[in-house]
Design a protein around this nucleic acid. Sequence first.
DNA 1: TGACATTATGACACCGGTGTCAGGAATTTA
DNA 2: TAAATTCCTGACACCGGTGTCATAATGTCA
Lengths: 338, 338
Amino acid sequence: MKGKATSFDIAHYAGVSQSTVSRALRNSHLVNEETRKRVFDIAKKLNYKVDKNASNLRTQQSSTLALLLFEDPTSDESQINPFFLAMLGSITRACAKEGYDLLVSFQSASADWQADYEDSHRADGIILLGYGDYIDYQPKFNTLLEQNTKFVCWGATVDNRPDLTVCCDNYGGGKLAAEHFIAHSRTDCAFIGDASDHSPEFFSRFQGFKDELLANNVKINERKMANAISTEESGYHATRSLIANNIKFNALFAASDLIAIGAIRALKEANINVPKDVAVVGFDNIAIASYVNPPLTTIEQNTTIAGQMLVENLLKLIRGEEVQSTLLPPILIPRKSS
Amino acid sequence: MKGKATSFDIAHYAGVSQSTVSRALRNSHLVNEETRKRVFDIAKKLNYKVDKNASNLRTQQSSTLALLLFEDPTSDESQINPFFLAMLGSITRACAKEGYDLLVSFQSASADWQADYEDSHRADGIILLGYGDYIDYQPKFNTLLEQNTKFVCWGATVDNRPDLTVCCDNYGGGKLAAEHFIAHSRTDCAFIGDASDHSPEFFSRFQGFKDELLANNVKINERKMANAISTEESGYHATRSLIANNIKFNALFAASDLIAIGAIRALKEANINVPKDVAVVGFDNIAIASYVNPPLTTIEQNTTIAGQMLVENLLKLIRGEEVQSTLLPPILIPRKSS
DNA sequence: TGACATTATGACACCGGTGTCAGGAATTTA
DNA sequence: TAAATTCCTGACACCGGTGTCATAATGTCA
């Protein structure tokens, strides 16, 4: 046999028509049991596999989802944010469970990604995953919506479409961090992250943090805040600049674990003891968090559930079912850094 | 416009035949420049995207590679080995650079994965990534070879086909670890990993380690060896059992970083100081390694290059070009654990 | 026994591109 | 001016399945 076997080959050997083969292989009840068995046996012998391109072309669907990972273009090329990698893992699993394949692709936020995968019928829907400059995405979301492309995204909100977003309750997570500090009488708080509304996730975390402090009559001093994107380097530099400016605090809330880890490095360098002098709380609970020294107290986002929800919601959208807005509860994981 | 635009729609608006549209969009030199422009403009306006299913079906290739990740089924479901995640990242990037899409899928070693992706024309080739029981795979490799499926694999060797494997020089890496201990006069060595030939990568690491020690007249005591698979838990338990058996050593070579991290935890628990009492060296240089306490000395496998090589070699195989056997040089990254 | 339902199958159009071949128009050559 | 060449385009088969429709064979009921 040259080349791969087709349904015509099977039809030939089974002495039936190609139509019947196709039906038999898809377990249509229209096919005689005996015929079905014969076809299956021959298919197995010839190592036949349905040509997905032909099948997808005809049925106009692909049983495939696309995952677009937006990386902050400023972050180090070689290291991908471990939080996203964890998400990727759980999304892959969730897809497999649902019988879907997963196409993975990295995108820079600026690129002209649009609906490429879905328009070209390569994927039935798209999962968008990224941290950061989501605000720039709204026009692209609109394009996707206009074209009736099915998509869900992590973290970012889409105007008037809360059902397209799965995210952690960042505001609530921020409050958890504040509660934790209050409970341990650490009220001289610093924040590192991006408190502008440029990065909505960080913004919400900060808002929750600030509001909960206020509810306990604690005000956060603007001078005790520094901007950082979600990398260890950025957290390190932001913290160093606070220290260099001689700014004092006894609690530090970092908008992500990577930032927190960088912050701890900067604190250590300045001979500031964690947690004795400064208690540090991060956000995400990436795998590294439990191994750093001291182990990092953090607000966990459950990536397993998050990945499942993204996939489930997307499939519902594809099937035309209604989707509820999904907010995942954050959990405080207390460790030795606070 | 209902539904997605097709090349016929463009043909209609451009007043040319569908054939010409197809040619124009693929920049065939057979098309008049003016016609080409017109077609492009209309395509853009209609937000036209080539239907990959139709295109792939006709051309019998997919511009897609499949990545099959074999996880050790005994490892914790929720956590994927960070080394593989790093590989996944670099493979994704390498694919993008070459203009290929990447299908990602998790498989358990036992499943009937065979050549599914390639047989069904979803992918032009397959990358196999896994640790562990590779020895069981040879029959499946044979099936793949028989069917002329293009594939490459990480780590595992395929009988008589060294060109299909990309891996780190595990033997050389083991020697590096031994050299390091010798240089620091730590000659009472323990090894944790799998020194049977069940896990060829671990086996090679151990062989290199042992041989280099022998070259320096140091013999490793069989009692100072313990089996472990590549998880933190497994490393922890293996080390605990050594300690429980009152086995003494002043240097420990772990077959992977996760094992090493587990080992350090066990040592700490037993009040054994790292590196003062026991120097620890791991293997992989995963991201966590530099953050643990103390930072872990390890043998780095460069995942960026590894991913690139896997993709490059696979593409060469697909194009029918000759591929050289690829052995990547390991590098010792000295940190505070030794 | 004739009308009708049920079951199993084949023929065929179709999905949306790609590649081949034939041929008309314009240009060059003899 | 006829012949050859180049350039550009359209018609059409084809990739390998899926879904619809027609139909033959068999079973059911009045």
